[in-house]
Design a protein around this nucleic acid. Sequence first.
DNA 1: AAGATATGTCAACATGACTGACATAAATTT
DNA 2: AAATTTATGTCAGTCATGTTGACATATCTT
Lengths: 163, 163
Amino acid sequence: MSPAPRAGELRWDIIELLFFAYRDFVGDADHELEAFGFGRAHHRVMHFVHRYPGLKVADLLDVLRITKQSLGRVLKQLLDEGYIVQKTGNNDRRQRLLYATAKGEALVGKLAGLQTDRINRAMQDIDTAGQEVLRQFLRAMIDRDDPDKVLETIFGSGKKPRE
Amino acid sequence: MSPAPRAGELRWDIIELLFFAYRDFVGDADHELEAFGFGRAHHRVMHFVHRYPGLKVADLLDVLRITKQSLGRVLKQLLDEGYIVQKTGNNDRRQRLLYATAKGEALVGKLAGLQTDRINRAMQDIDTAGQEVLRQFLRAMIDRDDPDKVLETIFGSGKKPRE
DNA sequence: AAGATATGTCAACATGACTGACATAAATTT
DNA sequence: AAATTTATGTCAGTCATGTTGACATATCTT
């Protein structure tokens, strides 16, 4: 009845640190995106298309976990403005494989640069072993049931999509 | 020894891990919130009111970095449904100090329990030193210029707001 | 008494989610 | 060959949560 759930056991500190850390982490990109008239949705699409060239629309929907209607608007803008191109699939001509253009790569790189600066700053006093603990933690925070194509790459072979 | 990236290299791996880890982390709460007809906005408000009892409305606006109009709708629902109560400030009777009710604490505790389960799972193979590295990293990811009242508490004295 | 501050509220609007329905082209199955 | 399924795109409407601007009220400060 009186729940008093597990008063001493709750990880309030980590929960809060994750909130603030992620807020400021995405804030770096948000600021820059304004200048382009884009939002977070555009960033996420650009990021994964750049990192996993030739991604199918269906794969992207899986990764982002949004509906095709929602993706449609954002993707259309990125196509119209020349940040992404589509190529018809070789085996299956219904598929539209997605690739970042040079313009798209430049944008994604700029945003990743800002976020990398923050990460490097936060890691500067952490040795190599500590950095590996960090990766281990972040990977273990991610659901592994029903992984999408990107997570399969991240977890499956350790093979990296780009250098 | 994973090669520490040379200057100029981008931290694609960490950027991506943060995206997926945070998505699944907040996903735990999102799912549960649906049953209450609430969203993330309600969760954030409940969390900080619970953790920092007697928080002023203005402080909450600072922490959440949203406008009072946006907060207003969410806060009104939480007040109407009895998850939060307001008390007039002692020194300054214009202030409305916010407190979680038992009902509110139960909800926040439940959500924190779900997230704590995930954190514990992710930390199970990490020793105490590693866990401290983790906290250090997350703290270093947060902007420290212009800290709000909550961040002052987190950074300022190390004094914890609750057990 | 006048002004500043803390809060609340009305109205309008933007973004990025959602559901449901339907269209087209291409692949697959019968 | 015809029927069905799949991959994608699109129209229309809704919802949640953010925004700006204007204004009201109570209370504190000067």
